[in-house]
């Protein structure tokens, strides 16, 4: 099934990959207790990537994954004449929230990427890495997973730390987390981008090893739904 899909996608893409396209995109935060920081959605050439699993994160991806700052990635995208939708939801996306927006893609910007930090995490993000945009008119649905940038220890301590390299989690927008945690771990043994193992959390609001709430902040993949309408 997947091979067929890939083959169809490739053959469809090869028909007119270089054409400009008029897209309507919907993205839904499927999680029950996590917010997304401002989304960055971009159409760009097929050989460009905001991130690749198994590779180390760029400094600009790290800034997005640890603190939700997409400005460096946007600078990167502008340098390659990508089409960029910066923060289409106008801020944080709540659990269950959907944002719908148009994206006009220029010739050669044949592939789509999506990133946003999953909050509260240390360096978790929802991602789509350079997927060929379908060229036949139609509506296409995809599900996105959560990744770990591999740049920060998943200590699960909420301390405002959102700058690249600063330990800890910037904030818990839902307000369900705790304080005073000792930290889940001091190690991050995989420093490459990988599928996020999920958060642990605990039920101790004023201590324990995690400031996250195990009944609220965990998730199961997928964490986002992406619908692309090709006109």
């Amino acid at each position: 099934m997947k091979k067929t899909l890939l083959a169809l996608a490739i053959s469809a893409a090869s028909i007119s990959a270089a054409s400009a396209q008029d897209l309507t995109i919907s993205i839904t935060n499927l999680t029950h207790g996590s917010h997304f920081t401002p989304l960055l959605v971009s159409a760009h050439p097929a050989d460009s990537h905001l991130f690749e699993v198994g590779m180390a994160a760029s400094a600009n991806l790290q800034a997005m994954a640890e603190g939700g700052d997409t400005s460096g990635l946007i600078t990167d995208l502008n340098a390659i004449s990508a089409d960029v939708s910066d923060n289409p939801a106008g801020g944080l996306m709540m659990p269950g929230q959907t944002v719908t927006f148009d994206l006009m893609t220029a010739m050669d910007n044949s592939n789509l990427s999506v990133v946003a930090m999953v909050l509260p995490t240390n360096d978790g993000f929802v991602g789509l890495d350079s997927m060929a945009i379908p060229t036949m008119a139609g509506t296409y649905t995809y599900y996105l997973n959560a990744y770990d940038a591999g740049t920060e220890v998943n200590d699960e301590i909420i301390n405002g730390g959102g700058a690249p390299g600063a330990a800890g989690i910037p904030a818990d927008p839902l307000g369900s987390g705790g304080t005073g945690a000792t930290g889940v771990t001091e190690n991050e043994s995989n420093d490459k981008i990988h599928v996020h193992r999920g958060v642990v959390g605990d039920s101790d609001a004023s201590g324990g090893f995690s400031d996250l709430a195990s009944r609220v902040h965990r998730w199961l993949n997928p964490v986002a739904k992406l619908v692309i309408e090709v006109k």
Binding site: N29, T31, H32, G33, M94, G96, L174, H217, W219, L220
Partner: peptide, 10 residues
Amino acid sequence: VTSVVTMHPG
């Protein structure tokens, strides 16, 4: 804690 239908966290 979230009062709309979402996916389940397990």
